[in-house]
Design a protein around this nucleic acid. Structure first.
Lengths: 234, 234
DNA sequence: TCCGCGGCTGATTTTCGAGTCAATCGGCCG
DNA sequence: CGGCCGATTGACTCGAAAATCAGCCGCGGA
């Protein structure tokens, strides 16, 4: 979303006064730093370097401001995910591409991602908007999985809805790990590995091939070495 | 946690007046219903059927109350998980048992689970307590995975820390699905299936055996049939 | 019976932040 | 130049909720 701009975004930049945009950015900043609770309009205003009242010139109230932050960021993300999910390619390719999208979003704008991640499961007051957005995303993935299942790319017994939910759970947790400092967000090496594992994990889980314990996988590996055409990404 | 263990807990039941406990339960109720934001002390007091001021007799302030709610619930869960993680058994068994623990906790006390799930990644104000708790849990699982890896139960390339995080991500998402009404929480059938899938997914992912597209997995199935003592759904 | 003490009460005070609004500013047009 | 208008300002209002506190109530002991 924050990326290139259609004429729409251009509008936002020029006609609709960059003030509004400044305030939006400031809101993301404060929101990410202090969370939904500690986010006061006064902070946003001073972060943006504008007068308190101006915030209300551009946004009806606090809720609308936060809602806009959420919607803007989320719709950008979801648009890209949709492009992948509904595009061409094998399930494996799509899963990897979605991981790409997610990590790229993080690289470009960690603040926004943090806000989305942290506030995702929340429905403050009575707002259902976020749940809806999230549910939609899962629906989107469910469809992708449905097609994949038709192509025989899925183990037949998986529940699609649940699997889709868990995929997002994985993405969320990968980021949570970042946000919590369990993985150094600065190290592109680590990021790359995390991304890779995200896809790998979703597709194949963590268990050694075979169900056996012991070092059975070693033998298995030998055996399968001959016929293993696919596995590992080059 | 709710299980007494030390004399301390016993105290809580008798000497320390069940009032405190009543208030705690009420807090969970309100907290689960209205979220962290909408949770006012007055609501908790009336839910508990006690005077407003009494809440402050037992808890220093709102934050301490909520912190206690969180800690109490979480430590109970974590105690059980620890018992499993550090006990005997194969990785597969442990994973299934942890899924059992989680779903049982939900069956027994959905409110508390909801509170924990929904508030888990938040650190309102400056409190790091929750992050700490969560991190500890992941650490716990990481150790479990370390042992599993030593036994050859894991694919060698998985990052343990990340895998542990994702395991909790899966659990969280499974519950999120419940909380959001994507799965009927009343239907024990569905719950059972979700639980099963949670474990299955973590261990083996969603992809058909093999990495190939098409129906290649069929051929693979034949081949591996001889040595497959693995699941394969009946 | 009376005292005192600790659990308990809830009206009162304090805090705090959202939202308002009258005043000011600055550019543009006639 | 002068006046209009939308952008901008920040002091102020006001309600909501947190936290306080002066005392009440019932019991146990003297």
């Amino acid at each position: 979303m924050s990326q290139q701009q259609t004429s729409k975004a251009a509008d936002a930049g020029s006609r609709e006064s960059e003030r509004r945009h400044t305030i939006l950015r400031a809101a993301i900043e404060v929101f990410a730093r202090k969370g939904y609770h500690g986010c006061r309009i006064a902070d946003v205003a001073s972060e943006a370097g504008v007068a308190y009242g101006l915030v209300y010139h551009y946004f009806k109230n606090k809720d609308e401001l936060l809602e806009t932050v959420f919607e803007t960021g989320w719709s950008g993300f979801i648009t890209r995910v949709r492009a992948v999910a509904e595009g061409e390619g094998t399930l494996e390719q799509k899963v990897r591409r979605i991981a790409d999208v997610a990590f790229e979003a993080y690289r470009v704008d960690p603040r926004t991602v943090k806000v989305l991640i942290v506030e995702i499961a929340r429905s403050p007051g009575g707002r259902v908007n976020r749940q809806t957005a999230f549910t939609d995303a899962i629906q989107l993935c469910t469809q992708m999985l449905t097609r994949a299942q038709a192509a025989g790319e899925l183990r037949p017994e998986v529940d699609l809805q649940l699997a889709a939910a868990m995929f997002f759970g994985n993405i969320e947790m990968a980021f949570t790990a970042l946000v919590m400092g369990m993985v150094d967000p600065k190290d592109p090496e680590k990021l790359e590995q995390a991304k890779k594992q995200l896809a790998e994990f979703f597709l194949h889980g963590v268990h050694a091939r075979e169900g056996a314990t012991e070092v059975a996988w070693k033998k298995d590996q030998e055996k399968s070495a001959t016929r293993s055409k696919v596995p590992r990404r080059s």
